[in-house]
Computed example of a mutant assay.
Amino acid sequence: MPVDAHASPRHRISQALHSIVPAQAETEVVVVDKDLLIFRASVVTASVHHEFDVTWVGEGWPAEIRRALAAVGSVTAMAAKRFSPGALELLREANVGWLDETGQANVSVPSGLVLFREPHPDTSRPTQIPTRWTRSVITVAEALLAGSAPTVADVEAHTGLSRGSVTNALRFLEGQALLKRPGPERGPNSGRHIESLEQLLDAYTTAAGQAWRTADILLFHRVWRDSLQGLVSDLAPALNSAPVTWAAGGTTAAQLVAPYLTSLTVLQLYVPAELLKAPQQLAHLLEARAVKRGHRIEVRAFPTPTSLPDRSVHGVPVVPWFRTYADLMARGGREAEAAQHLKETISVGATTQSQRP
Rank of each mutant, 00 (worst) to 15 (best):
V43H: 08
V43G: 12
V44D: 15
V44A: 14
V44L: 14
T45L: 13
T45R: 14
A46M: 12
A46R: 15
A46E: 15
S47R: 15
S47P: 03
V48F: 08
V48H: 11
H49I: 08
H50I: 07
H50P: 00
H50R: 06
H50A: 05
E51D: 12
F52S: 01
F52W: 10
D53A: 09
D53K: 09
V54H: 06
T55W: 02
E59W: 02
G60P: 06
G60I: 06
E64H: 08
E64T: 09
I65S: 02
R66V: 11
R66Y: 08
R66W: 07
R67T: 05
R67I: 00
R67F: 04
A68V: 08
L69P: 02
L69T: 01
L69G: 02
A70M: 06
A70Q: 09
A70N: 08
A71K: 04
A71H: 05
G73T: 03
G73D: 00
G73R: 00
G73M: 01
S74M: 00
T76S: 14
A77I: 05
A79G: 06
A80T: 10
A80V: 09
K81N: 10
F83M: 10
F83K: 13
F83C: 09
S84M: 04
S84W: 07
S84V: 04
S84A: 15
S84Q: 14
P85C: 11
G86D: 09
G86K: 05
A87R: 02
A87W: 03
A87Q: 07
A87C: 10
L88V: 02
E89H: 13
E89W: 10
E89C: 11
E89I: 13
L90I: 04
L90W: 09
L90K: 07
E93L: 15
E93R: 14
A94Y: 01
A94H: 05
A94V: 00
A94F: 01
G97K: 01
G97Q: 06
G97P: 00
G97E: 03
W98M: 01
W98Y: 12
W98N: 02
L99T: 01
E101S: 11
E101T: 10
E101W: 08
T102D: 13
G103C: 13
G103T: 08
G103E: 12
A105I: 02
N106K: 10
N106T: 08
V107D: 04
V107M: 02
S108I: 11
V109T: 14
V109A: 13
P110L: 08
S111V: 08
S111K: 14
V114D: 10
V114L: 13
